[in-house]
């Protein structure tokens, strides 16, 4: 009973602010939709010969074919219908696109994490590599990914890589950076006394890395992975834009904007936000599992 009560209290405490924010956001959204769509509605939907009431205007702005800003319920309906009205292998089903984008995101995430780890180990291992690599790594992130993406696609395409690989590479390009930066800090986090202790045990470099530096860096790694997977999702979607890809959330955004189908753009956006949320939640779940296994308070 008490557990249930406290759970209810917690729901009230944690849930209420979220609910208030959600309602506020929806109200603002509707207000924005009315404001932005009014001109189009007057021009195209409402009768020109007879006078119309403001109720008619309000209804018209919320139910346009190609609104400037679709209303939440329009987006919701489109979103829902894409999920239930079409089979999973149809390009009209958003989950089909989610699968395509998630695949390149996850490949890019795995590759980016490995690359980030490798770079961090190299940087921590040698001062020369630290000086040689770090400027390039930082510079790589100042180049807009939108500019890099077509280049990567062309080069990889000429080498015979198509489909997932180029998209995964671009996702990796955004993923590795937070992992590198966090891991350099994490691998350097052991105190002098701890490294000296390993020294007195005559531990070799690998042992010091595996038994001290890597475990000590885990609390640094996971926040970077959460950032990294979200960045990887952006990379994967951006990579879908210049390829004229027919599948993926990025492609869905692109076709939506080709045809001025704003509702489709918005439901793809909502879906990509949900995918990003799901991916970071999954990483956070793994983090909790790992850190609990280490018995940390």
């Amino acid at each position: 009973m008490t557990a249930k009560a406290s759970q209810w209290q917690r729901l009230q405490r944690d849930g209420l602010p979220v609910l208030v924010m959600l309602v506020a956001a929806l109200l603002l959204w509707y207000a924005g939709a009315v404001w932005l769509n009014a001109a189009g509605a007057i021009e195209r939907v409402l009768p020109t010969d007879v006078p119309w009431t403001w109720q008619q205007l309000l209804a018209a702005t919320m139910d346009m074919q190609r609104p400037v800003l679709p209303t939440p319920h329009q987006v919701g309906l489109d979103f829902w219908s894409s999920l239930v009205d079409w089979p999973l292998d149809s390009p009209r089903n958003l989950l089909f696109h989610v699968a395509v984008t998630a695949e390149s995101t996850l490949w890019g995430f795995v590759m980016g994490t490995l690359l980030g780890l490798l770079l961090a180990v190299l940087i921590v291992h040698s001062r020369t590599l630290d000086r040689a690599l770090l400027p390039w790594i930082v510079a790589s992130q100042t180049v807009p990914v939108l500019a890099i993406a077509p280049i990567v696609l062309v080069i990889l395409g000429s080498l015979g890589f198509a489909g997932v690989a180029p998209k995964a590479v671009i996702a990796m390009y955004l993923c590795f950076f937070p992992v590198t930066v966090a891991m350099v800090q994490g691998l350097r986090s052991p105190q002098r006394i701890e490294t000296e202790m390993m020294h007195t045990y005559a531990a070799n470099w690998w042992q010091a890395l595996w038994l001290l530096r890597l475990p000590a860096s885990l609390p640094f790694l996971f926040p970077a992975l959460r950032v990294g997977i979200a960045a990887g999702l952006v990379g994967a979607m951006v990579a879908e834009l210049p390829t004229g890809a027919v599948a993926g959330l990025g492609a869905r955004l692109l076709t939506g904007s080709y045809y001025g189908n704003t509702v489709q753009i918005w439901s793809a956006l909502v879906m990509s936000a949900l995918l990003g949320l799901a991916l970071t939640t999954a990483v956070a779940g793994i983090e909790r599992l790992v850190l609990r296994r280490r018995g940390q308070p």
């Binding site: 006394i193 475990p215 885990l218």
Partner: peptide, 16 residues
């Protein structure tokens, strides 16, 4: 491995 060394602080690894 001729000696064992005990430092000023225990320096135990918190994850072990």
């Amino acid at each position: 491995r001729a000696y064992g060394y005990v430092f000023q602080s225990p320096a135990l690894f918190p994850w072990r």
